[in-house]
Design a protein around this nucleic acid. Structure first.
Lengths: 232, 232, 232, 232
DNA sequence: TATGAATGAGCATTCATTCAT
DNA sequence: TATGAATGAATGCTCATTCAT
């Protein structure tokens, strides 16, 4: 009895310790993710060195490697982390009781807000080629083959949420009978291209203006005439 | 007389030799540009080393530096070179006797064809941060401050050609009275975003499909209802 | 109580470990300095590559950069290190109770001994132009503008110590009423010029002979007649 | 007869052409030497590139290699050339009817003037290690083993001229019975050290002041007492 | 667990020298 | 004769990653 009591107590303590450890682990991980997001966001992928992240987090470089498998893993984890929030927001919008047009507008606003702070993260995700050690060619159409599955899944979820909104619109007869995947891809492209505007020093749009503009064009296009009846 | 005859002949020969030399120089330069376009296009800017280009061109690295001032110069020269053709095409379209809608469609096709082979060049131009030596934070909206002026000019010309088409459309009452700069920026964004689709292995669009889709959405949007009368 | 005991013990261990680490760091640093002194001394500045030093120290090049900020820093650190000893010796001599003439002789001996092993270090310090990246013309009289301040200070200290000895000699009426700065500069020049003898394969002087000779000429000159009464 | 006339004429023409060619060759060579002297003098040896000299002379690099065997040869030729003038001056002084002290003073002035314009040439000659392709260690006391014989000879001639003056002084009882070679080496050291003053931003001496100072110290030393009777 | 230390592989750029024309 | 073109071999420096403690 006594022994079993102690044993139980010991076991419990061990559990607690592990929990504490686990908690601590997650705290540190999240802490690193936060800082890294900022750094990647400011410098992009290839211009961000592990040294810099280590410096900013005040951890040693070796420690970073305890929490993440490498620079790439860290980067993708940062994105995964960031996308979480966005996913929650998009889902919320999709479930609310707005008109499809309203929903689109709100989605666009949410995505723009998301990009606003994390411009260079997106840039890095969408545009930089990143390879571990050896240079590695990428056949077109098979980009970033090294993107981890969970991140891929997360991105598809986001996309699916938008698809859903578009489907609703079509069902309600508000949107033309387009292919929802095409449409959501077009919307994504529009926003993406808007944010990654390239090296031209053009006029700057506020997030509000940007959302307005993008929503408008996505919804109504530029032509005065109605859209064609049949859609390929 | 005789002397002057020989002198003239000598002079002529010298000129010919120089012409040949100049030609040779331009040939080599163009040869390098071609290979470099391919390499940059496959690996992006920062993952392309001068060593690699040297290897592919079968020139020595030092020779590359005879033709170009450095990696950046080479890269920008590649782009400049590529954009030349595109500019010619866009201008031709703009001057033809098509309807504005037709012109837009043709422009989109041209741009897509341009991007088709040079996907990663565009990617690199629009998205990679390049810095000569020191890491450098970039305030958003002030991207790539180091882009050379002639390249900037070329890009603006392209943009202006599109603006012109849109202005025509508005004047003819075919397009809504939008701001032409906004509209061309939206069109550019759409294409750009479409091409730089990010790491998701989505369904692949042929250049033809892509052009169709993008033109359609840019012109008519997704909504069934007409566009709003007033535009901010 | 028990806890505090362990805590104290733990803290102490940590301190010890840090001390050990610090010691190790200094050892390595000094080790590198030693080897680098030798290498620089054999090849001069510009002919010494970081690769070579790495090879000689059996550290990797990257490690050298952990201990020193760059080639120049390493070089100046080597000199700083070397000059330390010399400064101590000169000061000791200046403070002893010798006659000014004796002091000069001893100073000359000390400097010659210093140069003996480090001939090419001095050569490099005094004569090679070092520039980080760009070739750069140097207006005469404004040499080595990039010499770090602490090194400059150290050199001035040495010079000042010699000045002091000369001042004493003048005060005691043993030396002519010359300008002490001029005199110490002359002495320095004499030694320097003696050591950096140029490409002529002349007869070799032992450090002893060299000191004798230089001291004698500095003190008494070559003329049989007395020195002129008035000095510029 | 006629034939022989023509033959003679032809031969003469050939000779003339060769003479002209030779003249042209020497002109070009001297032209290059002049420019190179200036460039080496401004940048030192290792910081002067063949490219730079080619640029300044407006010859091609390949042409430089027609006139000189390589960078080192060019450099030594420059020095040889420069030293020619100096040799003539020193010999003239030595042969004039001045007192030995006067001669020394004039010699010092001449050397200072020589160095004045060519500071970095001297610096390079005396202090930079230069090696063709492979780094090459130099055992102390056997400096610059690659110095060409004619340059060595020229330098020894200069030295011998000074020796001669000193010998005269000793014979006339004006100078102490020192070893003339030692003395001339001391004088050389003094000037050399004075000119190559190192990285300290000390007070600047005009050529006039410098000559005065150096002559004075060389002749009379600093001590008030007479020089020791016996000299080792 | 956390880290200081170490490094291999790479990178953009330079330059003395050679050679075909 | 003169040169444009080409290059092999360096060079200083960086960085993601590993490992002993």
């Amino acid at each position: 009895m006594v022994i079993s009591y102690f044993k139980r107590k010991k076991k419990k303590m061990k559990e607690l310790r592990e929990k504490r450890r686990e908690l601590h682990y997650q705290q540190n991980r999240n802490f690193i993710l936060g800082i890294a997001e900022d750094v990647f966001s400011r410098f992009g992928y290839s211009q961000t060195s592990m040294d810099l992240i280590a410096q900013e987090t005040q951890f040693s470089k070796a420690t970073l490697y305890r929490y993440f498998a490498g620079k790439q893993d860290l980067f993708f984890s940062v994105i995964q982390n960031s996308l979480g929030d966005l996913g929650v927001q998009l889902t919320a919008i999709q479930r609310k009781n707005f008109s499809p047009e309203e929903k689109i507008k709100k989605i666009v606003v949410a995505i723009f807000k998301f990009y606003h702070k994390k411009k260079n993260i997106g840039r890095a995700l969408f545009l930089e080629r990143m390879f571990a050690r050896k240079r590695q060619e990428v056949s077109p159409g098979e980009h970033h083959p090294q993107i981890p599955n969970n991140l891929r899944k997360k991105l598809l979820e986001l996309s699916e949420t938008i698809n859903e909104v578009i489907r609703e619109g079509i069902d309600q007869g508000v949107f033309a009978p387009v292919d929802p995947e095409d449409a959501s891809f077009i919307l994504g492209s529009l926003v993406r291209g808007f944010v990654f505007r390239g090296p031209l020093g053009r006029k700057e749009y506020s997030p509000h203006q940007a959302s307005e503009l993008v929503s408008r064009y996505f919804l109504y296009g530029i032509a005065r005439s109605n859209q064609p009846k049949k859609i390929s």
